[in-house]
Design a protein around this nucleic acid. Sequence first.
DNA 1: GCGACAG
DNA 2: ATCTTGTCGC
Length: 227
Amino acid sequence: MEIRSLHGWDVNPSRAVEIQELLREKISLKDSSSLGKLRSIAAADVSYNKGDTTLYGAVVVVELPEMEIVEQRWAKGKVTFPYIPGLLSFREAPILLKAFAMLRRAPDAVLFDGQGIAHPRGCGLGSHVGLFLDLPSVGCAKSRLVGEHGPVGEDRGSYAWLVYRGKRVGTVLRTRAGVKPVFVSPGHRVSLRSATKLVLLTCRRYRLPEPIRLAHQLVNRLRREGR
DNA sequence: GCGACAG
DNA sequence: ATCTTGTCGC
């Protein structure tokens, strides 16, 4: 699929912050019309090698309603940026974009293992990569980066607003009774409402969305087998 | 200066 | 993220 080039990746942390502030203005929180006929959903994830600088990135595409895998691509590369809270996309996006570039067909939406706009500068991994792909994207993180929230109901589907600097930037969603909730936030071209519905829709028997679990399994398998 | 801090 | 076995519970 086509990848819109917005800037290179050879940057330092200071420059990365400037880039996020510029990208923030380009993010759309409106539902893309293409979400109406939502059919294929993709998810991307990254895995690292221990004392090495090798990393793997993968994207898995599934189709509703059964969510069977229709395509999957992966790439192997080297770490070029350190892990700094708030700058995760500069570490993981490059390898993920390589995998996305190999997709034959662009998915209708993409899920990311990280934050969308629930970020210090409103531009987390989900938003950053969503902008490059110019596709509806959603951030679904396992823990909090920024924002505050009240208690979350115990039933599946219960949620609390994630508020940051006086704005609702996401939801803390219980995707399964009895398990820790996930942090959902719009990436690009999706509303907070739709982002939350999309995550709940793709969560079946586990805490995380099925596409994300599949991408997670794929990169970990690649790392174990050292391919 | 101190505490927080996606993966 | 990664290092790691068993184990408590539905």
